[in-house]
Design a protein around this nucleic acid. Structure first.
Lengths: 220, 220
DNA sequence: TCCGAATTCAAATGAAGGTTTGAAATGCAC
DNA sequence: GTGCATTTCAAACCTTCATTTGAATTCGGA
């Protein structure tokens, strides 16, 4: 009943579909297109996975395993400087998202799903995103003062994530504005340096008791 | 030939379609649905606008006019403190994007288009986005040291934009993570305070000669 | 009121895309 | 090699959706 996991075309489909879905999204990638790339019949997808949506879910699960092949999430050395730990992790994370020499289609797939969710989103959040988010939150918490409110911590983490995701989500516009960083290893390095500096500076500002400049009522 | 601009159904379509496109995107919003909401025949769209895409472009143009009704972009008082100017502008911008009591569908429409561009993107960039981006860049430039490299300025601006856009682009995931700010005027105020503080702190860090923590080669 | 142009409408058209079908081919156990 | 289950395939199917069509209706001016 359950198909043996030793299927040639089955795995071929899983391998081939990831980059295609990443390039054009779930809705705009056709079964025909995928099957042409995998050199198999259109019925194969439904035979092996039941439906296009089921197939997509399988692709995401399959992608999750080889998500960060070649580079594993750095484990924080216990007792290390929190800021340094965060900086190291950011280097790894941004690199895995944007490095021009590495297949970033898995992250692109995640980014597409984040913006335009399908029913497969829930599984993906629990499997891929929540662990990352938790790790990042822990690291930021170590940098902010002990009694920082959860809301403040949450906002800080979002500010970090947002700084990176924009390059995945808004690239079409950034390119038109001439605001996309150079697509080279050196350019990526400079971008990472920037994000690390900006982030640590932002966190330092949050740590101070502080009051934002020009506090006013929000508009309306 | 060119239809007189005094058409009842024509304007009714333009009025009704914005929120619908904002809710589900261009591809997933059907002509039928729109025409049902506007109480007119499906052929009306093609009659008045030529095609669905032409209609969409008209909707975007129409939306641009009433984009920020009720609140106009604050004009920087010449000679004012640059940081205060930026803070004020950020309050206005974020408020116009996220204020729960205000129709934010125009901004949602922009956000959708940013992530999933249609041929209408180019016009939208020139009309709506580039002016904002230019204004923001100018303000940031005044805060950073005089001889700051263009790339650094560009990255700083992106970091600011990214902090805000994440709430438009990734809300589905943030909700699942419990990381979405409270949807109230007070919650928005706190969020704005956070972004202002984080941003000014980040910019201050960029201003210092500086070197980021744990400088390493990027992975691979 | 009458005429012509503009507009509205229900129905048809045609393309695209996911899914189903039934037969052919393949692989594997005996 | 025979037989059975699995897998592949081409073709048909079915739904959705934008677009077109041609008739009916409305509107404005003479």
């Amino acid at each position: 009943m359950v198909p043996a996991p030793s299927d040639a075309t089955r795995t071929r489909l899983l391998e081939v579909a990831g980059p295609l879905f990443a390039a054009r999204g779930f809705r705009d990638t056709g079964i025909k297109e995928i099957c042409a790339a995998a050199r198999c019949n259109v019925a194969s997808v439904n035979y092996h996975f039941g439906s296009k949506l089921g197939f997509y879910g399988a692709v995401l699960a399959h992608a999750h395993q080889r998500a960060f092949v070649g580079s594993t999430m750095p484990v924080p050395a216990a007792g290390a400087d929190p800021q340094q730990t965060l900086a190291t992790w950011l280097r790894w994370w941004i690199g895995s998202m944007l490095h021009p020499d590495r297949p970033t289609w898995v992250q692109t797939l995640l980014a597409k799903e984040i913006v335009d969710p399908t029913p497969a989103l829930d599984a993906m959040v629990e499997r891929s995103i929540r662990p990352m988010h938790g790790r990042l939150t822990t690291m930021v918490k170590r940098i902010l003062p002990p009694r920082t409110k959860p809301a403040k911590l949450r906002d800080a983490v979002n500010s970090i994530i947002g700084q990176v995701l924009i390059y995945k989500h808004a690239s079409a516009v950034l390119e038109r504005l001439g605001a996309m960083p150079e697509e080279s290893a050196a350019g990526l390095d400079r971008l990472i340096d920037h994000v690390v500096t900006f982030t640590l500076g932002g966190l330092a500002a949050l740590a101070k008791p502080s009051s934002p400049t020009t506090r006013r009522r929000s508009a309306r």
